[in-house]
């Protein structure tokens, strides 16, 4: 997907949306300039970019309700290396005209890499 706002990288390649679930997938490109700087010789998807992946998924699924208001909790439990693939599955519940989003990010091997709980409001 392409994004029309400021972003460090394309953080969602494929997005599936059902009634209350988003599933975002991303191949972690080890050659991306961001990963060359994070870190030289050890390309890792920056943990905080789980927030970026979630924001881009929300922007595509709910363009008018995708303003990030808060990250209630973010936990990073395993590194995402260049060459791996991130699958972020997010459950949504309505909240004050926006969304409560709780999700888990997994690597290609199924290991949990991250959990996130964030709140989005009207753009």
């Amino acid at each position: 997907m392409t994004v029309s706002f400021a972003t460090p990288l394309r953080a969602v390649e494929q997005l599936d949306v059902t009634a209350d679930t988003l599933t975002a997938r991303l191949y972690i490109d080890p050659e991306h300039p961001i990963l060359r700087g994070h870190f030289p010789g050890l390309p890792l998807y920056p943990g905080v970019f789980i927030v970026e992946t979630l924001c881009q998924a929300m922007a595509q699924a709910f363009p008018t309700q995708s303003r990030l208001l808060s990250v209630r909790s973010l936990r990073l439990t395993a590194p995402l290396h260049g060459g791996d693939e991130l699958t972020l599955t997010v459950k949504l519940t309505p909240l004050d005209g926006g969304w409560n989003a709780r999700g888990t990010g997994r690597r290609r091997d199924g290991a949990a890499a991250a959990s996130i709980w964030a709140v989005f409001g009207g753009a």
Binding site: L44, G47, V71, S73, R75, L76
Partner: peptide, 13 residues
């Protein structure tokens, strides 16, 4: 060494 982000709580925009 490298620095790894382990997490955050209550980050308010």
């Amino acid at each position: 060494s490298v620095l790894l982000f382990l997490g955050a709580r209550e980050y308010r925009v």
